[in-house]
Write a protein that binds this DNA or RNA. Sequence first.
DNA 1: GTCTTTCGTTATGATACTTCACGTTTGTGT
DNA 2: ACACAAACGTGAAGTATCATAACGAAAGAC
Lengths: 247, 247
Amino acid sequence: MRSSAIESERAPSRRERVRAATIEEIKATAMRMLREHGSDLRFADIAREMGMTAPALYRYYADRNELLSALMVDGFTELSAQLAAALDAPDLDDFAGRIRAAAVSYREFARADPARFSLLFGLPNPGFGSHGEHTSGPAAGAAMVALEQCLRDVIDRRQIVRPLVRHVGPRWAAESGIVQAGAGARIPADAYQSLLHFLAAVHGFACLENFDHLNWISPGARDDLFDAQIELLIVAVGARPPQSDPG
Amino acid sequence: MRSSAIESERAPSRRERVRAATIEEIKATAMRMLREHGSDLRFADIAREMGMTAPALYRYYADRNELLSALMVDGFTELSAQLAAALDAPDLDDFAGRIRAAAVSYREFARADPARFSLLFGLPNPGFGSHGEHTSGPAAGAAMVALEQCLRDVIDRRQIVRPLVRHVGPRWAAESGIVQAGAGARIPADAYQSLLHFLAAVHGFACLENFDHLNWISPGARDDLFDAQIELLIVAVGARPPQSDPG
DNA sequence: GTCTTTCGTTATGATACTTCACGTTTGTGT
DNA sequence: ACACAAACGTGAAGTATCATAACGAAAGAC
């Protein structure tokens, strides 16, 4: 029973190891090609780069889209890990600092690898309908889990987390509990809502910047703009009272 | 001289008219195909739909990307027009109302035609570098012009427009005037900045929703969430003081 | 030491973009 | 009205890529 029925934790045989390594190499090569040649990923290119021929790749991925899916899963995983790391600040009481770190981390994730960000949040690819479980689950799910974790920490520490605007609609109020049930979190509907505002705002900025819709603003000014937006979001989320900004 | 050197405003000859009509039909058909068959736009499909063959389209567009560019230009134009219309509210003194209308309009633009929104703000297409004048200029430019118009109206009317957070970085402060010079607007740097926060937040929500990253939230709850975000942005932009939301 | 599975290659088919050469239609000038 | 020129559309052809199929080679299992 220890080794047959459940295959989750068997000793990785040699074949499995080399296959896994090949898969990793394929993904790494594919990501590199994406970075270099834009979103038109050619199977032949990947294969040639690896010293193989194109049909060989079909032993590992049934489809071009399947490879892209795998890359997306990896990307979302890394994004959520990076977010979680940013939120897991040395000083857990510094809610504002953690929020700031998360925002910066999200933006940096996009800037460090625009191709990957485009892969995750742009139009996936021809023949890759924007609907389906590929895009959504890992994305919002992982990010939300990390953010929820942060907020729950704050609540546990009895820090005041009172969102600036507590306009909670009835349908959201009803859904908030349901949505959270999966993650095991229990957060006031208004606070949870403000986290999504945070996510939307940061994501929006990252998208605009990544997809080159802010190129009319110099990089330095963009940085300032983003900093200011973070400050606004810190206030909006309730990590700092509005008066703290003198006027 | 009347008909040779400058061709901008000649009487549209018959040929030109029928050609323009054909171009319009091509674009309309292409958009329909985009809506129906996702982002994999086939030239042959468009042609067959129009009772032609594929090579004929090359008389009108040198390239598949050129057609997509044209569709993008149209889309951005329509988006900016829609935004401007929303901001041009019956009651010009109702700044909060105009902001709300703009936000709703932006989201509705996305929801009314997800394919078009994806075309504009997703990765355009393979071989369509995310840099270049295609994406940026019309997009941010047009949206910003409309929003600036709104803010300038408000300022002219001596309405208080004091953004909630006035954390203005030096580089943004320096650039704000430069950027605005083109549009002929003259708006305080912090107010202008808050407009971009508004744009980023609304755009972020629209993107998340359009690209299916919020499908774990029911449509009704999403509406509530968006409403709440609008209220937050109204406060952030300074169209309403924070206290107005009781707590 | 054979036997099976996995892996990679060459060859092949299918599809779509794009160009080319040619005939046809349409508008123009005389 | 008639010849001419430009624009337009079609079928054939070239190229590139995805994807499959059939075959041979290598590696591990018993």
